[in-house]
């Protein structure tokens, strides 16, 4: 079986995996990082979004072996101790969730989105989150949270 080595949330990890192992299953089942969710399993919903090399990708649509050598960040890697990342804090402050299942993916997408362009309009945020689906359709507060999170991230 191939060996994969990568850095996940700042820590080097290494494991032998079947080639067919998806990155999301590697994170959840080998590393017990279950904050990254499997929603649709067809690469549409974005609940599995993580950062690979600093960019948001769907970890159910990437093999673990394709992330060999990469820096991976999951929702568990955002907070510093008890201090949430400003985007996480913004989702809490603005109630940017209902059931919460899509939230890890939304937060990971949102951080990547605001990093690439600082001052986003509401329309740009909605377009930028095309790859993330909220089954509760709670998009209004998610957009508000991303706007607030973007401002807080800039101020940090």
């Amino acid at each position: 079986m191939p060996t994969v080595k990568m850095t996940v949330n700042g820590k080097p990890v290494s494991a032998e995996v079947e080639a067919r192992t998806l990155l999301v299953h590697f994170l959840r089942e080998h590393l017990d990082l279950t904050g990254t969710h499997v929603g649709c399993d067809t690469a549409q919903c974005g609940a599995c979004t993580v950062h690979v090399g600093g960019k948001a990708v769907k970890s159910c649509n990437m093999l673990a072996v394709q992330a060999d050598g990469a820096e991976v960040t999951t929702i568990e890697g955002l907070a510093t101790g008890d201090t949430l990342h400003p985007m996480q804090e913004a989702f809490r402050d603005h109630h940017g969730l209902q059931c919460g299942f899509c939230t890890p993916g939304m937060v990971m997408s949102a951080i990547d989105l605001v990093k690439r362009k600082a001052d986003l309009s509401e329309a740009e945020i909605r377009a930028g989150l095309e790859g993330n689906i909220c089954r509760c359709t709670g998009y209004h507060n998610i957009v508000k949270a991303v706007q607030a999170g973007a401002a807080a991230t800039r101020g940090r």
Binding site: A43, G46, T49, K55, A56, V57, K58, N61, M62, S109, D112, L113, G128, E130, G131, N132
Partner: peptide, 9 residues
């Protein structure tokens, strides 16, 4: 094309 995550890969 697709969505942002898809365009990244």
């Amino acid at each position: 094309i697709g969505d942002r995550q898809v365009r990244t890969l």
